[in-house]
Design a protein around this nucleic acid. Structure first.
Lengths: 180, 180
DNA sequence: GGTTGCATGTAAATGGTTACATGATTGT
DNA sequence: ACAATCATGTAACCATTTACATGCAACC
């Protein structure tokens, strides 16, 4: 999904600055489904403003740098709606972690254990973060997506916990020995 | 994960042509965790051969175009192992589908239903494809990753099936009406 | 006769990441 | 004193996607 549509989507929920948009992809409601960096957000915001899909106002703050707060325009809402009606691409899990685990047998077992434990921790932290901010998500679509995220993180934690020791044991004691 | 490492990984399991490598990311054992296109595979293969990490031989075929079959060299195995020991980046689900569902309330309900049903079908097809080719995956790492994929697809199917009707009902009958 | 599968490759265009540049404030 | 948070932005670099180019065989 391109950065422009992502920004339009965030702003359809309420006004925000570029910095705040980034946060919504890191810790906010989109954290588990999409990603965006400053380098893609700021140019996208500029372009969308030029095209009349966003309005921008400057907000002065005490003890903090100024903010550029963007609002979606009616034309912006139309553009977002049009984009959302195009059939979505396939869902894709991008996991360097699983690619590495695929070759578990060529890794030193202690490193393997470290990778798995760290990933369990990461999934648990994600789960807690999501569980905390969930109740207030009002529109049905948001609740649906939130629930999907919870289900997926919970599955990952459960799977990793249940199969961690088994994998480690198999890697340490090769099947060739077992078979003999 | 860069295309070069991906190719090294596939070739560590056995010789293959560029075309066959692509297939392993579409239907094969890596389908649910990584992706790669011809435009990234072929240049990667050329570069890896130049660097001495791959060997290449031409294979003539009856009634089929010639193949360039690549084999990983000892240097290639070393490079792969070195790369696999670097701590992996965060796992990321990239889902245009969920981004769209987030804004379910601004979509026409029939289109919403169509998107969900299609996605259920897609996840079920993926699940069947994976379930079929699973038993023969011998190394423990491969079995672990395969199991993870199955768990994740099954969770997705279950969640979508269980919440489909609820979402559709909520979107069609806004909560403001229910509250009155 | 059209589409799909096999098979390789290039070039242009797109688009994103990473690193840099700046600077005040708050917390350790 | 140092790191992190807040805040915006640019530019170089990197990589991938997409489209193009080619061609035979098999199947419907």
């Amino acid at each position: 999904m391109d950065a422009r549509t992502l920004c339009l989507g965030v702003l359809a929920r309420g006004d925000a600055s570029g910095y705040e948009i980034k946060k919504s992809f890191e810790e906010g409601p989109f954290a588990h489904i999409q990603a965006a960096s400053f380098g893609s957000i700021y140019p996208a915001l500029t372009k969308l403003s030029e095209d009349g899909l966003l309005a921008c106002r400057n907000e002065r703050q005490d003890k903090r740098p100024d903010k550029k707060v963007y609002s979606i325009t009616p034309a912006g809402r139309d553009a977002l709606a049009a984009r959302l009606m195009k059939p979505p691409a396939d869902d894709r899990l991008s996991s360097d972690f699983l690619f590495i685990l695929f070759f578990a047998h060529i890794l030193p077992p202690p490193l393997l254990a470290e990778f798995i434990d760290q990933r369990i921790g990461w999934y648990e932290a994600s789960l807690e973060r999501m569980a905390g901010c969930g109740a207030a998500a009002r529109p049905p679509g948001e609740r649906f997506v939130h629930g999907f995220g919870l289900a997926w993180y919970a599955t990952a934690v459960r799977y990793l916990r249940e199969h961690r020791d088994g994998l480690l044991a198999e890697v340490s004691a090769p099947s060739s020995l077992v078979a003999e």
